[in-house]
Design a protein around this nucleic acid. Sequence first.
DNA 1: GTTGAATTTGTGGAAATCCACAAAAGCCGG
DNA 2: CCGGCTTTTGTGGATTTCCACAAATTCAAC
Lengths: 411, 411
Amino acid sequence: MSYDTDPFRGEFDSLEEFADRVSDVLKCPVTIEDANHRLIAYSAHDDYTDPARTATIISRRVPEKVINSLWKQGAIPALLKSREPVRVPPIPDVGLGSRVAVSIWKNDEVIGFIWVLETNRTLSPEEMEWLKLAAKAAKNKVLQLYMRKNKKEERVQELFWKLLTGHIAREDEIHAHLAAMQIPTAPQFAVVVFRFAADLTAEMERQISYLLQTTQQLPLLLYTTDGRDVILLAAPKTDQPLKELNAFIESFAAKMKERFHIHDVQCGFGGVYGIYRLIEKSYREALAVLALKEKLGDEIKSVYGYAQLGIYQFFDFLLEQKRQGEWTNPALTKLQSYDRKHHSDLVKTFETFFDHNQNVQETADVLNVHPNTLAYRLKRIADIAELDLHDMNQKIKLYIDIKLAKYEARG
Amino acid sequence: MSYDTDPFRGEFDSLEEFADRVSDVLKCPVTIEDANHRLIAYSAHDDYTDPARTATIISRRVPEKVINSLWKQGAIPALLKSREPVRVPPIPDVGLGSRVAVSIWKNDEVIGFIWVLETNRTLSPEEMEWLKLAAKAAKNKVLQLYMRKNKKEERVQELFWKLLTGHIAREDEIHAHLAAMQIPTAPQFAVVVFRFAADLTAEMERQISYLLQTTQQLPLLLYTTDGRDVILLAAPKTDQPLKELNAFIESFAAKMKERFHIHDVQCGFGGVYGIYRLIEKSYREALAVLALKEKLGDEIKSVYGYAQLGIYQFFDFLLEQKRQGEWTNPALTKLQSYDRKHHSDLVKTFETFFDHNQNVQETADVLNVHPNTLAYRLKRIADIAELDLHDMNQKIKLYIDIKLAKYEARG
DNA sequence: GTTGAATTTGTGGAAATCCACAAAAGCCGG
DNA sequence: CCGGCTTTTGTGGATTTCCACAAATTCAAC
């Protein structure tokens, strides 16, 4: 079959109709996605479909593991760079058959993709050219969708800000707003804040948005940005929400790094609650985590959740207390002066010991000393500070005071 | 030798002269003590003296271990009860030879003792009668000393209160006052407060005062009372002041119990400082310990020192925070609701585990479960509370929140 | 009642801890 | 430089912990 001119000229009522047309022309199943790999349309009368396509249609989005492998394999980077069609060899691991794809452009921005599944044939160079034409033809339709979405997005962001700042106090009112905007409700949620090294550029924002949209680890109910912060309302699904959130953050940071070479992303999230009114609190807590990270640096590097801050949660309070009253821990003072006089490291030893969960072996390794040395030092500490090593209470106090001193020194 | 009338009639310039006279009459070495076993006078021309007497004269007070054995042996209780002379068989352990003693009375109160060392002879019944006469004759002289002492005591107490309430701010001024009253200075000291079940009676006050005066474990610089409190300024001598103070308190409480059958003595002491200006702070801290003990009961039964309060030091502060802000530990909440639903004891398990220094064996014994059961429960706790058992920080936070909840429930 | 899940107890072996004691190394003042 | 002190490292053995796995028991729900 051949076409003298553009086979996709003319009007189409819907993108579905358009997809069918492309499918007819290329004799292959076709799917059209937006820039974030959400399904926009797909051809209906297809004989064969691979598992990846089936899954995409069922969930109305490309499964995350498929996206991941397309990034690793290089197809998506190529599509984001060039307007040329790209052929992707089969990736059986994720149920992906051989296919050809092309990106849809508006000015110099990708706003969608057309995927053609090569079921039992291979597209000829000529057909590849047609695919390029299809991409051009799709542009306007996709753009319309975009505009509509963006407008809705703006209203949603406005609502999110109201929630973050606690402007809507009544729970039923919040529910009504969310329902009106078709935002799904969730039994539990937390505010997550990513903080970047500098204010977000439009480019970065697109990339971040892309990553978040394609993430399926965790439902993300709401999204907005603020200076160098990206603020999300995430809704963990299991009864181990903290684990979920941590995993999400780790993977987000990893992807930011490997896909877009953006390092220096800090992150914090607040408490997990089930009442929308508490979104504000969760947000405050997320910001508190970030503020503490700024101060404490490595101390809490791998901590993101407010709940996991542990004792640092009340450090601001304690510090205030310490500064106004004459709060001294004589035990710590004695240890410090001993350290100074004898060039020893008793305080650091104790701190490290607790940092490593009172594990002798581990602590000794970190400090590069013999386990017996550690034991000796601890006994020494007990003598000097008049500390009962069998009394957790006293030990905790010393540990807190050590950390507090550090905190004070930096704050 | 025999005397028709009272051999101790007439005037004596001093108690020393009197002691010599008694010694002459009885042909034995004689010592006169006040009610608190401080040396008042002793006969000079003695041939033989046992080690106990020597030590008494050297340090101008009866050694504590001698007093202790005289209590145990029953001599002192007998002397406090009756005006009759008492014979004490030798107690070689403390260097005490055979002796006879009699108490000196004013109305129905003992104000001193006369001790007669039976070096190489035994007093006859007749001589015992003379000793009774001697006790009567000594009364006035001893009383004079008492009055003088009491007057000084009053002025000292006034000064102590000024220190306790922080009324004298300048260090050199404090020094001057102390020097004027011949109160020895010390490099470190702490305020100790004993609190009795009810207001102190004159009788109890005498007993307490007696115990404190005879204690030689620890120099006691100042002493006063306030309602049901006895307030001391103690001056530990070693570089392990807390240990000293604890030992002192334990022994004081034990003696109150066994000698005077007074139980229900609470005690607290504040920080150990070297600056007199901080006496006030130490006093406040001692009171804080007592207030906490009232609230927490068994929780800190064996803690007396403010320094050993550990995390409880800032519990008042945290509680305030908790009450005004919506401070919840979701982990704890989850555990509690799990406990309620399944009639389990996860919270208590964790608390006990920490109370016993994370010692598996010990905790399992206390809870009457198999060590593996404890391990299982801990793992369960980690799951439910999303707690990393290897992260001391998080564990500490949970522990504190558990204790804080208890504290709140009682406060 | 029965069934299935949660909990408790038991077993065994590798690893870690605790403890006492001793040798070596380092430090400081005379 | 020596001697005495603190500190570090080493050795060995009893005890405890940690872990995985299995059996027994309890509990709750159907």
